[in-house]
């Protein structure tokens, strides 16, 4: 089992969700986070340009069985990388894949792969 954590642009969430659902990955957790990478995003405040220290992003957490790792990662890679005009640019985010020791479904107390 693996835990896939993806940090993506806010405005890519709809597209990534659509791609994941297409790949039959429907069990996910989404949270709004902010962070700092290489991207610089200007905002305007009373006529001055301001660069915030932290930029809002969306974090997806998806627990999968090993055979689904590539499917999930590919779905995210293909949907989260390009903006509406088909260009790729800095700030598209990252995917982290980490080993997952245990997974327990609270309602049934099932454990392991069956619970995912």
């Amino acid at each position: 089992m693996k835990l896939i954590t993806a940090i993506i642009r806010e405005d890519m969430l709809d597209q990534v969700r659509e791609a994941l659902i297409q790949a039959e990955i429907t069990r996910i957790t989404v949270s709004r986070v902010s962070g700092h990478g290489r991207q610089v995003e200007e905002r305007i405040h009373r006529g001055e340009k301001i660069v915030p220290d932290l930029i809002p992003k969306v974090r997806l957490e998806i627990a999968v069985n090993d055979s689904f790792v590539d499917i999930t990662c590919n779905a995210i890679l293909e949907s989260a990388g390009k903006n509406g005009n088909g260009e790729s640019y800095i700030g598209s985010g990252k995917i982290f894949v980490t080993p997952l020791e245990e997974c327990i479904r609270i309602r049934t107390k099932e454990r392991g792969s069956a619970a995912i």
């Binding site: 405005d11 905002r43 915030p52 809002p56 903006n83 509406g84 005009n85």
Partner: peptide
Amino acid sequence: DTQSEMAGLDHSFHGERGYGMLN
């Protein structure tokens, strides 16, 4: 265009966000 629609009116045409700067 699609890009500004996905990013939202606030960022695309006003350079601002409605609620706070962070989460």
